[in-house]
Design a protein around this nucleic acid. Structure first.
Ligand SMILES: [Zn+2]
Ligand SMILES: [Zn+2]
Ligand SMILES: [Zn+2]
Length: 684
DNA sequence: TTTCTTCCTGCCATCCGTG
DNA sequence: CACGGATGGCAGGAAGAAA
């Protein structure tokens, strides 16, 4: 330093410009890295922006993937919140939406919106007039002071509210002149940065207990020797409010029933024998053949400093879909500095069960669980999986609860860090009230799905990209990769449950279970709409190719299913089967072949070789008299019997789509989404 | 209640990219 | 060509809607 002058300069317009630019990018879909589905609407956004604005997203995105579905708020409400996030403004929000807006803001941990009620309550007429329109704006975001205040732990109570209300017909304007910092968010960031600053929040800070790194658990233990309850999910961040869901989960927890069987859980995979050695206990009751779609699942996670307290319990009431005996293998990401296995295995003894055919991966799955289970960190997680029969539930319904108890001590986790709400200890995650969860197992990311009366967070395991598909051999990957940041997600659509050695793939969105992963993948498109299958004849779009095909058949009127008894043709299997049952009193699904499936000639679909073409075999019916009228606006009713018309009227693809120039046109929407606009050629 | 329609998912044939 | 993953067609039951 030789006495040279130091020059500082501040671009006071920068923050505002930056925000504006981000908003423009969002509008154009530029660099958007997350899709949030709310009701029927999809919102593209930037994770970083959401994380910086919402404690909920901050927590969620630490592990979540690119597609998120939120069902705890309305789309229009979320749109307003999103607009605020990207503009710092609430513009012309109907006051009758305010309550819900505030509620959602609290849920999402958007402090400004969450605390709108305070200033607005001081503005008369806001709550009363249903037609009031509220416009609220933060101080200029370009105000450097405002920015600074964001980083400080500004006391919300210091906010200086200036509200203006205008008469009917005029837009009431409420202006708040106060620092916009989100306290929780700031604290969270500070806490994190101070304790774990070398890690990026994206991959390392796992706020949800299910995959909470042991050090975090230990940190939690530091704070309290007794397990305290922390909510994970909307209510766990940015708001002290307890959601109804939490209450629900608590309530159901008390309903845990019946027999308790040992379940071994560890921070890694457990061999059956090792399972016994572990403190985790899981109880499971009842014979269940298959995981029920109506299962209610609650996951309860607890943090505990008492390693000896670790236990997992699975209890369950009878469920129609679950095998009588359940081997629940829950792979979870409990990564400790020491060589903890990533996957947590919980197994419940079982008797031979079910006729469900095992998926191709099932056998391997069971054998893959043999991986060592030592954690060596002194940090253990207690997992309690509870299958409970809900009092009001139908006989087939029950709930599953999983309580994870993290144990350990601080000295084992020098880098322990994490949001306070995690550290508080026990954490309850309630998985969906109405939808089904059949099992729990590994997955690749956290997914939150909040229902009306409850909320759920499904926390699949992040898997090493290099390893097989959650075969349970996570040990090596974990041990070999002390850097948890490298635990990238391989799947973001499912997690897994192993029951009696069978693998069930659970949709992270709706919790449906699948034996076949391909089935789940196919199903998941109904959530993500990654692929769209538009009808070639009308404007309908389907999430499954098969749905479209069957729908298009109604346009063409082709009847491929022919009753071999009377020769009548039908448009689909169901109609044909119904006919055979009612008219011929026979069972079409019986051993004898009572119908013939003709090749599809009106649509260009994959033809199976085993589908015999009657024209090449026994000509049962003449081929005259059938004309396919492909009217884009009309669909053939399935019940319109076709008499003895031939399904094989010579109709080629060219007959239906004659001109090359009339091929359907798909083009990207202006939003840049993966959506396509299907344009039916005029000649149709 | 019955009938019709659509949805759903295990299964598996076919397609397709890779080596 | 072999292999493996992706795709999607099919069966037949289930659920939902309509009569
Ligand atoms: Zn789903
Ligand atoms: Zn159509
Ligand atoms: Zn017949």
């Amino acid at each position: 330093m030789e006495g040279k002058k130091l020059i500082s300069a501040t671009d006071t317009q920068y923050s505002g410009t930056l925000l504006k630019s981000l908003n423009e990018q969002r509008a154009l879909g530029l660099f958007c890295d997350v899709t949030i589905i709310v009701e029927d609407r999809k919102f593209r956004a930037h994770k970083n922006v959401l994380c910086a604005s919402s404690t909920y997203f901050h927590q969620l995105f630490s592990v979540a993937g690119q597609v998120i579905e939120l069902n705890f708020l309305r789309a229009d409400i979320f749109a307003e919140i999103l607009n605020y996030i990207y503009s710092s403004k609430l513009v012309r929000v109907r006051s009758d939406l305010l309550e819900e807006l505030i509620k959602s803001g609290q849920t999402l941990g958007v402090k400004f919106i969450a605390e709108l009620g305070v200033p607005l309550s001081q503005v008369k007429g806001i709550s009363g007039g249903a037609k009031d329109v509220v416009s609220e704006t933060l101080p200029s975001s370009s105000d450097p002071k405002g920015l600074e205040s964001q980083k400080s732990t500004t006391n919300p109570s210091t906010k200086n509210v200036v509200a203006k209300e205008e008469g009917p017909g005029m837009m009431p304007i409420i202006t708040e002149a106060f620092s916009i910092s989100s306290e929780e968010f700031s604290d969270s960031k500070k806490s994190k940065s101070s304790k774990d600053e070398e890690e990026d929040d994206d991959d390392d800070v796992i706020f949800c207990s299910e995959i909470l790194p042991p050090q975090n658990n230990a940190a939690a233990a530091n704070n309290s020797n007794t397990a305290t309850q922390t909510q994970v999910g909307p209510s766990s961040v940015g708001s002290n409010q307890k959601s109804p869901a939490v209450n629900s989960s608590l309530t159901t927890q008390t309903q845990t029933t019946t027999s308790v069987q040992k379940i071994s859980t560890n921070n890694g995979l457990l061999a059956p024998a090792q399972t016994q050695a572990k403190s985790d206990i899981s109880t499971c009751t009842s014979a269940q053949k298959h995981l029920s779609p109506n299962t209610i699942v609650a996951i309860q996670s607890m943090l505990s400093s008492q390693q000896s307290n670790s236990s997992s319990i699975i209890s369950s009431a009878p469920q129609k879909n679950l095998p009588p005996s359940i081997n629940v293998v829950v792979h979870k990401q409990h990564i400790s500095n020491s060589s903890l296995n990533q996957a947590q295995t919980s197994s419940v003894n079982s008797s031979p069960s079910t006729s469900a055919s095992a998926g191709s991966s099932s056998p391997q799955q069971s054998t893959s669980q043999k991986a060592g289970t030592t954690d060596g960190s002194g940090v253990q997680k207690k997992k309690v999986i509870t299958f409970t029969q809900e009092p009001t539930a139908k006989p087939g319904e029950f709930k599953i609860k999983i309580s994870d108890v993290f144990t350990g001590n601080a000295k084992n986790s020098p880098t322990a860090s994490g949001p306070k709400h995690i550290m508080d200890g026990k954490k309850i995650i309630t998985l969906d009230k109405d939808t089904e969860i059949d099992a729990l197992s590994t997955g690749c990311k956290v997914y939150a799905n909040i229902g009306e009366n409850t909320y759920d967070i499904v926390i699949p395991i992040k898997e090493d990209p290099d390893e097989g598909e959650s075969k349970g051999n996570n040990e090596a990957s974990i041990n070999d990769s002390p850097n948890r940041k490298r635990m990238k997600l391989k799947h973001d659509d499912h997690y897994e449950l192993i029951v009696d050695g069978r693998v069930y793939y659970i949709c992270i969105v709706c919790k449906r279970s699948y034996v076949c992963l391909t089935s789940l993948r196919r199903h998941f498109n109904v959530h993500s709409w990654e692929r769209k299958y538009p009808c070639h004849y009308c404007e309908k779009v389907f999430p499954l190719a098969e749905y479209r095909t069957k729908h298009e058949i109604h346009h063409t009127g082709e009847r491929r299913y022919q009753c071999l008894t009377c020769g009548k043709c039908f448009i689909n299997y169901q109609v044909m089967a119904s006919h055979i049952r009612s008219v011929h009193s026979q069972d079409p699904s019986g051993d004898s072949k009572l119908y013939r499936l003709h090749p599809c000639k009106s649509l260009q679909i994959r033809q199976y070789a085993y589908i015999t073409d009657p024209s090449n075999s026994i000509p049962i019916i003449n081929e005259d008299g059938l004309v396919y009228h492909v009217d884009p606006g009309k669909e053939v009713t399935a019940t319109q019997e076709q008499g003895e018309d031939s399904p094989d009227k010579q109709m080629t693809w060219d007959d239906i789509f004659p001109q090359p120039g009339n091929q359907p046109v798909y083009r990207n929407t202006p939003e840049g989404h993966s959506e396509f606009e299907f344009v039916i050629p005029e000649s149709y």
